[in-house]
């Protein structure tokens, strides 16, 4: 019986190697499920600067905010794993915190917070359609208001 067990070991080895390889590959693909979040920081104001041409894809939505000018201040992209929090610095010492929780259907479940020092300006949790954009705005900056266009991809 013992000799039979010993004789079977050569055929187990290729199987074990194949299984380990497949498990490693699956683990690798699972780890690749990252979320790519783009944040465009925009200054909405009633100045004569007009509409920044780099924001043309958002023009129809931004003009609904009823300001005269929209200028792109910064564009930041972060890649985050589920549960990981990314920080995006905003003008005025503020910080935007992004935490993707997971995917629900075709939407990304995400927590978003804006803080100014220790003060919390906004905390929200939402589900955004993949490649969809949500606009968050309101905090004052210079002669206008900060407006953030957050686009989530997975």
């Amino acid at each position: 019986m013992t000799s039979l067990r010993r004789d079977r070991s050569p055929m187990i080895v290729p199987f074990a190697l194949a299984m380990v390889l497949v498990c490693c590959l699956n683990a690798g693909s699972a780890g690749a499920a990252d979320y790519h979040i783009q944040v465009r920081t925009i200054l909405a104001a009633n100045s004569d600067q007009g509409f920044d041409p780099r924001l043309l894809d958002l023009k129809k939505d931004l003009i609904a905010l009823n300001y005269m000018s929209f200028q792109l201040l910064d564009t930041t992209g972060v890649t985050l794993s589920p549960g990981q929090t990314g920080k995006v610095k905003l003008p005025g010492g503020r910080v935007l915190l992004l935490t993707p929780v997971g995917v629900v259907g075709s939407k990304i479940d995400m927590k978003i917070a804006i803080r100014e020092g220790a003060e919390s300006i906004l905390t929200t949790r939402m589900r955004i359609e993949n490649h969809g954009t949500v606009i968050i705005g309101g905090p004052g900056h210079e002669a206008g208001f900060l407006t953030l266009a957050v686009t989530a991809n997975f």
Binding site: S106, K107, E119, H131, T133, F154
Partner: peptide, 22 residues
Amino acid sequence: EPVVKTLVKNDCIVDTIDGGDR
């Protein structure tokens, strides 16, 4: 591949929102 609905690109559901005293 994840199912991607492109019919409503910017569809968004806000579950919770808290602006403090704002």
